[in-house]
Design a protein around this nucleic acid. Sequence first.
DNA 1: AAGGAGTGACTAAGCGCTTGCTTATCGCTA
DNA 2: TAGCGATAAGCAAGCGCTTAGTCACTCCTT
Lengths: 202, 202
Amino acid sequence: MPNARPKTRESHPETARDRLIAAAVESFAAKGFHGTTTRDIASAAGMSPAALYVHYASKEELLYQISRSGHDVTLRLLREGAASSDDPMEQLLAAVRGFTTYHARGHTSARIVNYELSALSAEHYEEIRAIRRTINQQMRRIVEAGVAAGVFHTPNPRMTALALLSLGVDLARWYRDDGEWSDQEIADHYCELALRIVGARP
Amino acid sequence: MPNARPKTRESHPETARDRLIAAAVESFAAKGFHGTTTRDIASAAGMSPAALYVHYASKEELLYQISRSGHDVTLRLLREGAASSDDPMEQLLAAVRGFTTYHARGHTSARIVNYELSALSAEHYEEIRAIRRTINQQMRRIVEAGVAAGVFHTPNPRMTALALLSLGVDLARWYRDDGEWSDQEIADHYCELALRIVGARP
DNA sequence: AAGGAGTGACTAAGCGCTTGCTTATCGCTA
DNA sequence: TAGCGATAAGCAAGCGCTTAGTCACTCCTT
């Protein structure tokens, strides 16, 4: 069984669920959750309006799935960065590179992840907020570890960590696929900026 | 005539137009343009739904007025920063302090200014985009002037200017009025970060 | 034969905005 | 200064339309 699938089998290389998610990501990013109709999503996925409800219970569930998996990826990137080395500077560089690259390359879904929180249901919103707190914590720990080790120099590690996250998050807002820099170039530059921000070279 | 008024006289200290703008700012910031109904706005301003149209032609016009004046203020702050001194470092500090303070203290309207562009009409969107380009230019000029004068050190002034703007813009996203830092403290810290980012102390 | 994927027609609710009207306030005339 | 016409602000009601979501049904694969 070289290609085991979870429970049901589907013949298409891209499942209907995936196509709906992809269509929702594009629409939500371009026009916002409330600016997007279920017909926008369904027709972009090549289906009738009713087909959406075969696969998802509501428009909000689509948003939740997108938001949830985006946040999971983001947290994983930071954790992998922190676990990549014992040296805080290496940890910071790995975390910033992962975070930055994700927000540039995946700017479409990253916009939803960061700007559509208020459209989530109350329960989902709380769940996502908890992940976001963990994300902030993770970045803060890296900065604090560097300060404790004497390799970083900043008077306010907590605010500095937020500033580092801000750089990445806002990238999703202004990054364009046809822009003048690749996500690689941006990540390189942002790694340099991160070192300056934490005062790695006093 | 100790209190001359433009054309018509109104008895209220805060005009109906102003109350509608204030209500729209709150609603748009909290739920987005498309998530806000004209009834939300009108009732928050203490009026019937129809009264909105006595003062504004459409819901979009409210958004445009908010966006336009927010962008005008932002550009003015950067220009005042650039004009405040001949020393690029002083210019940078004044610009960053103004920009940061505005995005913290005025985070509610700043959210609309930065995140609701796609809800504008095509004509208004183009008009606003032009202002945004000028804003980017202004910050870039300050950084380039510093590099030319040999007091800043960065391999990519254009991207560095965008990063400086990103810090301020994203502040509007995460800043809370009841947060642990005042806008004053944040501005101080962000001025220090700005100096590090542009490499003012090599 | 069975069951999931997908559909067209539908509904109830809510949307932006308009209409027809009342009220309050002003400048002007007598 | 009393009364009048003009004008703008405001409201109750509601119009025409769009929305998210439903349902009875038909395909299609196994």
